[in-house]
C-alpha cells in the first residue's frame, strides 16, 4: 500500500458517499445514469469473487464488501425507492456495445485461462468504460447538479490516483500489471473533458453547463 493507492481508494469511497448523499438529500436520482450504476455493480461482483477463496487483508475485505453492497444499494434506490425520479428516456447508451467488446477483450487478454481470471479481466475492461452511459447522459442534458459533478470528480480522481500508484510500484516492487494499467489509463482519459469543465466552471462557483 502506498499513499497514491490509499488516496485513490478513499476518493472512490468518497464518491459513493457523495452519490448516496445526493440521492438522499434531493430525494431524487435525477441526472444519474442507471446503466452506469448497473455496470459498476457488475464490475464489483465479477471482480471480487475472490472474496470467497482469497484473503488479502482486512482493509481489502472490508472495501470489497462495501463496494459490492453500496453499488447494489444504489441500484435498489434507483429501481424502487426513487424510481419515479429516474428518466430512462435520457439514459439511452447501448450497454451491449460495452459488454460485448469487454467480454472479447477478456478472452484475448488475461493472466490465466480460468473463470475467475477471465471475470477479473472482464471487470477491469468494463470498469474502464462503465462511466460512458453517465457521460453520454451528461452530454445529452448539457448540465448537471453540482453535487453530481462532485461525485464524478471523486470517481475520476480515484482512477487518476491509481496511475502514480502503478508508477511507484513499478519502481519499488518491480511490479507491472499491464491489463490494469492499460485499462486504467483509458478510464482516466475518458474523464479529461469532464475534468476540464469541472475545474474551469464548478470549482469557480459556476454551474456545470456544457457549451451548446
Amino acid at each position: 500500500m502506498n499513499i497514491f493507492r490509499l488516496l485513490g481508494d478513499l476518493s472512490h469511497l468518497a464518491s459513493i458517499l457523495i452519490l448516496l448523499q445526493k440521492i438522499q438529500s434531493t430525494r431524487s436520482c435525477r441526472g444519474i445514469s442507471f446503466k452506469t450504476q448497473a455496470l459498476y455493480a457488475t464490475v464489483f461482483i465479477t471482480r471480487y469473487l475472490d472474496l470467497f477463496y482469497d484473503w488479502v487483508s482486512l482493509y481489502n475485505f472490508v472495501m470489497k464488501i462495501f463496494f459490492i453492497a453500496s453499488s447494489c444499494y444504489v441500484l435498489y434506490l434507483m429501481k424502487y425507492k426513487y424510481r419515479p425520479t429516474h428518466d430512462p428516456s435520457i439514459d439511452t447508451f447501448r450497454v451491449e456495445y460495452l459488454l460485448g467488446p469487454c467480454a472479447v477483450l477478456a478472452l484475448l487478454f488475461h493472466y490465466r485461462f480460468t473463470l475467475p481470471e477471465l471475470l477479473w479481466s472482464f471487470s477491469i475492461f468494463l470498469e474502464s468504460v462503465a462511466i460512458l452511459p453517465q457521460l453520454f447522459m451528461l452530454q445529452r442534458t448539457g448540465e448537471a447538479e453540482t453535487i453530481t459533478t462532485h461525485y464524478l470528480a471523486a470517481l475520476g480522481a480515484y482512477r487518476a490516483l491509481y496511475i502514480p500508484n502503478w508508477i511507484y510500484r513499478w519502481f519499488t516492487e518491480d511490479m507491472v500489471d499491464p491489463i490494469a494499467v492499460t485499462a486504467g489509463i483509458v478510464q482516466t482519459a475518458l474523464y479529461l473533458d469532464f475534468f476540464y469543465v469541472y475545474f474551469t466552471k464548478v470549482l469557480q462557483g459556476q454551474k456545470f453547463e456544457l457549451p451548446a
Binding site: 481508494d9 481489502n60 472495501m63 493472466y111 500489471d177 490494469a180
Partner: peptide, 10 residues
C-alpha cells in the same frame, strides 16, 4: 514481476 496480477488492488 512483469505481467503480474495486482490482486491486492481494488
Amino acid at each position: 514481476s512483469q505481467g503480474a496480477h495486482s490482486k491486492d488492488e481494488l
